[in-house]
Every structure is written in C-alpha cells, then in structure tokens.
Write a protein that binds this DNA or RNA. Structure first.
Length: 366
DNA sequence: AATACGTGGGT
DNA sequence: TACCCAAGTAT
C-alpha cells in the first residue's frame, strides 16, 4: 500500500467532509477531553448538545472540581455509563490540585487520569497537543479490518496489533490529530456497519473491497444473550409528595435517584411484587391504586418491562421510610423531580406522568 | 480474557 | 421483532 497516498486521500476527504463539531474550531485540551469522554460508546450526534451545556456549566477544570457530584450527575443524565461523569470530576480535582488547573500534555500523565484509557489518551494528545500517537477506537478497527482484510476477530490481540502497526506507520507528523479524527470520521460516515464504498476516499487501498470480503469484515465476537426481566415500580404519593431514593455506590446507576420497586419473582403479579418491594426496600405498606403506564427500556444486556403504579399508603399512619436498599431518600414535591438525575426508564415515567392529565393536579400543586 | 457498565438509533 | 452497536474503561 502507498501510505503517503492513503494519508493524503484521507485528509483531503476529511477537510471537505468533516462534521462541524463545537470543539473542532479551537481544540483546547479541556473541551477535547470532555468530548472524548462523552463520545465513549455514544454517537457523536448525541454528544453535541450535552457538550454545549457542559461548557456553559463547567467552563474549565476548576469549575468542574468545585461542582457537587449531584450536579455533575444531573448534567450527565441520559448519557449512561455514569462512572464517566464521576471520573471526569475526580480527574478535574487532580488537574487543579497537581497541575495548577492546566491539563497535562504528557501522554503517560494523561493516561493516568481516571476514566482515561489508551484510546482517550491518544485522542487528547494528538488532537489537543499535536503529538503523533495513535487513537484507535471501534471506527479505526473497523476501517482497518477492511483495509487490511483481517480475518481474525478484530478485538483480539493479533488483529489489534496489525491495526496499531499500520496506524503508526501512516500517522503524519504534521497533522496527527486530524489524521486520527479523519479515520474515525470515515468509520462513522462512510465505512460504517453497512459501508458506502463507492464514495470512500481510500477504496483503492482497501483489500476487502478488492477481494469482495467487505460484508465479512470486521470479524465480530459471538453476541451475548439478552436477559428479559419484568419489574414493578411505584410512585408513592403522600400529602402531595412522592417518595424517591438514591441508589447505592456499588449498584447499577450509582448515585442516581429512583422510585422504589424491583423484579417480579416467579408467579408474582406486578402489584404483588410492588407491595413486597416496598416492604423490603423502605418498610412501608402500600396499595397500588392505579396503573400509570408500562415503560420498556434496556441497560447493558437486560431488556426491562417496567410496570408503573401510582400508590397510596396502606394505613393512615405513615411511618418514616427506612432505606434498606438506598443511601438516602425522602418525599419530594413532584415538580422538583426535574432536579434529580434518574435512570432513563424512571425519567420516562416522570415525563409520562407530567404529560398525562390524570396527574396534572399532582404536578400543579407542587 | 471476560464482564459490567446505559442509552438510543438503525436495519 | 430482534438484533447490532456507538470516538471505551475499569476490574
């Protein structure tokens, strides 16, 4: 392969076709860092709005280090993988404490920050500091699985090693950041799962294209089984307020808020599960009064069907809840539910209630 | 090396 | 409907 020509074709295509992203005008390390963390396992189109809002709230590492974790999680609500948000905040504190608020430029130091792995360190070093280091993400792996026609699973060491060697050889000293971004942009816009080979700027260099093996590249690992679960959750309303609780740090969705509830056990109806879960989690007796809706959502390898009920206390006397499954909790005004970070399923339940006339009074009162 | 960690969009 | 999987990291 003519490496010089490959790189020139790619960069010319990138200059003409790259998307206009907020941090691309002036790629400083802080905006680039935030964009790279947000983009992990997340499509760029979704990142843009979060990034804009983030820069307004936390314009620099100092603002971020000072912000309460609650506020940072709320800013991250809906993006998922919430440890990313926690780690950004921890890293910001280190940047302020150890580096006087200046983002470090040494790749090894960048790599040592929480939440920054091999890929992200390379991306920041090359894009924000112009250092000739690779940044190999899923796009780059897919592109070179095709260009080199790699017939082993691309996430495994052998294939990865081939890709990295190739990237290092092609990486131009003068525009390493643009080169890395161009590979990713190509993977996102042209060399995607179903590639658009006719418009590809490097098809003349592509072995899989020449051999007709594009459809078989990259070689993927076997898919994992999906687990379907049914859950019940209840919005307990007492004196115009709703009960929420904050999830534990070692649990799924650490630090996010939710309505009490849980998985249906064998043979249980959603209502029965709800009554049981309320006893177990908060030691309250509740009566499911009305089905609100059913929310379907998924997380990692689970597909959840969540049955949602409006509940009232079973007895006139309502003792203080005991939070056995959460770090804290309490009754809050329905209107203030907007201020807490919820997992997407619970957020959608809240949105549903806010838009359903049956619950208009509840939300208006608060 | 394998698994957990969220979410939404595409085919 | 049922997958696939996206600018990955931590353990």
């Amino acid at each position: 392969m003519d490496g010089t020509r490959f790189t020139r074709n790619l960069l010319d295509w990138y200059d003409a076709n790259r998307r206009d992203l907020p941090w691309r005008d002036d790629p400083g390390p802080y905006p680039v860092w935030i964009s790279e963390i947000m983009a992990q396992q997340t499509q760029m189109d979704r990142v843009v709005e979060y990034h804009r809002r983030w820069m307004r709230h936390y314009p620099d590492p100092e603002a971020l280090a000072k912000a309460p974790e609650e506020a940072v999680l709320k800013s991250w609500e809906g993006l998922g993988y919430y440890n990313r948000a926690r780690n950004i905040r921890k890293a910001a504190a280190r940047i302020v404490d150890e580096f006087g608020g200046e983002f470090p430029s040494d790749p090894a130091v960048i790599r040592s920050l929480p939440g920054i792995g091999e890929y992200t360190a390379g991306a920041i070093a090359s894009i924000a500091f112009g250092q000739p280091v690779p940044a190999i993400d899923a796009n780059v792996l897919r592109v070179f699985a095709r260009v080199l026609d790699i017939d082993t699973p691309i996430r495994e060491k052998a294939g990865r090693g081939q890709v990295e060697a190739c990237v290092r050889e092609l990486l131009p000293e003068d525009r390493p950041g643009d080169f890395n971004q161009a590979l990713m942009e190509l993977g996102a816009l042209v060399c995607s799962r179903l590639p658009d080979c006719p418009v590809c700027p490097v098809k003349e260099h592509c072995l899989a294209h020449a051999r007709g093996t594009i459809g078989a590249r990259p070689v993927l690992p076997p898919g994992k089984d999906i687990i379907r679960i049914n859950m019940a959750t209840g919005v307990l309303v007492h004196e115009g307020q709703a009960l929420i609780q904050k999830r534990r740090p070692d649990d799924v969705w650490p630090g996010l808020w939710e309505f009490p509830g849980g998985c249906l056990e064998q043979g249980e109806t959603p209502e029965e599960a709800l009554v049981r879960e309320y006893r177990e989690e908060v030691e309250l007796d509740v009566v499911p009064e009305e089905k609100i809706t059913v929310v379907a959502y998924s997380y990692t390898r689970y597909r959840v069907t969540m049955h949602c009920y409006l509940c009232r206390p079973a007895n006139g006397d309502v003792p203080a809840p005991v939070f056995n499954a959460a770090v804290e909790g309490g009754f809050v005004q329905p209107a203030s539910l907007a201020d807490y970070a919820f997992p997407s399923g619970h957020r959608r339940l809240i949105d549903f209630m806010r838009n359903d006339l049956r619950f208009a009074e509840l939300f208006r009162l608060s």
